[in-house]
């Protein structure tokens, strides 16, 4: 009798479901009471090609993201940050654990999860406007509606004059603006960004960060943003999550409370930069 009882109490605790969940502190309560929109629970990832005994790409990642929060995943190459993003996007499957977006388990891509890739993810055979319309029409908009939305979104990202240009005729920065407009055309609940400015020169990169914040303030979205640049994280994030490789795990989580636009000489940010720098040294 006693043994059976112990077993009953033990199981829900480990799986993170059932009555034990009620005892968990609500993570959103501390953060203004908005609903969590992304819940990453115990997510682990191993590739089939990994050798026996090697460390997993991701190991038991827990992360909860509130509605409209801007979270940056920061880490060196190979820490699994892009893999984690792809799992949230539904483009890769986790080996263990679960991801809920808007309280529904992620089973695949689509369904209101917009994504901006590192580069060259625009359809080269479609003009800038047609790329944006592709996304709008994929969620059932008529051609006229999609064209109007494309014009509006291209204006929002500062590209009103190049709608009929092909991606190959646009600079890298302009291409990524179109990619952002295209992701927004899905009217997604969350926006996933995989080092979207990683291939740009530093000046363009800084401009794009300002631009993204401006767009984000007009069209509030939950953003999960992957980068390996500490300053990019400091400029953009409400919260920075630092990952370390082998096994991929969270080694630091910090909120950034400074108002935007932020300055690189801000002493609070400099202190945070130092703390993150230290955390990134973890192996």
């Amino acid at each position: 009798m006693e043994v059976a009882n112990l077993g009953m109490n033990d199981r829900p605790m480990r799986s993170g479901a059932g009555p034990a969940m009620l005892a968990e502190p609500m993570p959103d309560a501390a953060n203004g009471g908005t609903d969590p929109i992304i819940r990453i629970a115990g997510v682990g990832k191993r590739f089939a090609s990994d050798t026996q005994g090697s460390e997993p790409v991701l190991d038991a990642i827990d992360l909860t993201i509130r509605d409209n929060e801007f979270v940056v995943l920061l880490g060196r190459s190979g820490c699994g940050k892009t893999t984690l993003l792809n799992i949230v996007a539904g483009l890769e499957k986790a080996t263990s654990g679960s991801v809920l977006v808007a309280n529904r388990p992620v089973t695949g891509p689509g369904g209101g999860k917009g994504m901006v890739f590192q580069q060259n993810a625009l359809f080269p055979w479609l003009t800038a406007a047609r790329n944006v319309m592709f996304a709008a029409q994929s969620r059932g908009q008529s051609k006229a509606e999609a064209a109007a939305l494309a014009a509006e979104l291209l204006r929002l990202v500062g590209l009103d004059a190049v709608g009929d240009k092909y991606p190959s005729e646009l600079s890298g920065g302009m291409q990524q603006r179109v990619a952002i407009a295209r992701a927004l055309a899905l009217d997604p609940a969350i926006l996933l960004m995989d080092e979207p400015f990683g291939a740009l020169d530093e000046l363009t990169r800084n401009e794009m960060q300002d631009e993204l914040l401006r767009v984000w303030q007009v069209r509030r979205k939950t953003v999960l943003f992957v980068t390996h640049s500490i300053w990019e994280a400091l400029m953009l994030a409400d919260r920075i999550v630092v990952l370390a490789p082998r096994p991929g795990r969270i080694v630091l989580e910090r909120s950034v409370d400074q108002p935007r636009p932020r300055s690189r000489t801000n002493p609070g940010l400099l202190a945070l930069h130092e703390a993150i720098w230290q955390a990134l040294q973890a192996r």
Binding site: G90, L91, G110, M115, N120, A121, L186
Partner: peptide, 14 residues
């Protein structure tokens, strides 16, 4: 064919 194009289309529910 660049797999990123396929993934981009997949995120658009194609």
């Amino acid at each position: 064919v660049d797999p990123v194009l396929l993934n981009a289309a997949r995120t658009m529910d194609i």
